[in-house]
Amino acid sequence: MTQIDGQPRVRITGATKKFGDNVVLNNVDLEVRAGEVAVLIGPSGAGKSTLLRCINGLERLTSGTVEIDGVRLEYRERSLNHMREHVGMVFQSFNLFPHLTALENITMAQVVVGKRSKSEAHDRAAKLLFRVGLGEKANSYPSALSGGQQQRVAIARALAMTPKLMLFDEPTSALDPELVGEVLQVMRELADEGMTMVVVTHEMRFARQVADHVVLLADGAIAEEGPPEIVLDAPASDRARSFLSKLQADG
């Protein structure tokens, strides 16, 4: 599959997250190496999205550490901004800026954060739109795009910052079934190009085909992890077996 070198891009150690008395993550350790695609699966409420959001500091860990390329995540405004420049995120509800066109959505942060010139950012945005198959939609506002198109613009927006890590938070869960494929296709291509990705998803086929590493979370802890053919087809833990059999029962 993809070329994976040994250096950990993300290292999460002893991650614990509480909302009040509610323990959402309980002492989770996770490593994602550069070039690797890690897929987080598990029942809803297991803490998948929270774990993902802790990687770029959208959620603050109660205790434990996150390191990206060996640099420990700190919650000061400036270091957060600096880290996020290199960590792209794609959301379940797309979160495109509705007052900007598709192209402007992709250029803004390049100019404001990346300090690129307008024309440079513009060229890059146009290329990325073309790459996600939306070259002709540059001047469309998000409200005129389908969910699948919006999500592809959102991916392009994150890629415009040349991230070294991409986080996907259930990127296809809000989409009509017939639009899921186009988004997964873009993600598949990205994985083939060697992008390091952490993906929260319910798409088991995607996990099976694209993941290097599958992590099954349950009740805020890792129930099982490893290569997809082991975690998905021959899980050792009861928790993993019951989750996967439920999925199969649902088709």
């Binding site: 957060l80 979160n95 800026f97």
Partner: peptide, 18 residues
């Protein structure tokens, strides 16, 4: 303005002010 907008902007490295 939906909070998702703020999160999307912050996740691109945009500061609070921006």
């Amino acid at each position: 303005v939906h909070n998702g907008q703020v999160e999307a902007s912050r996740s691109l490295g945009m500061s609070r002010v921006a």
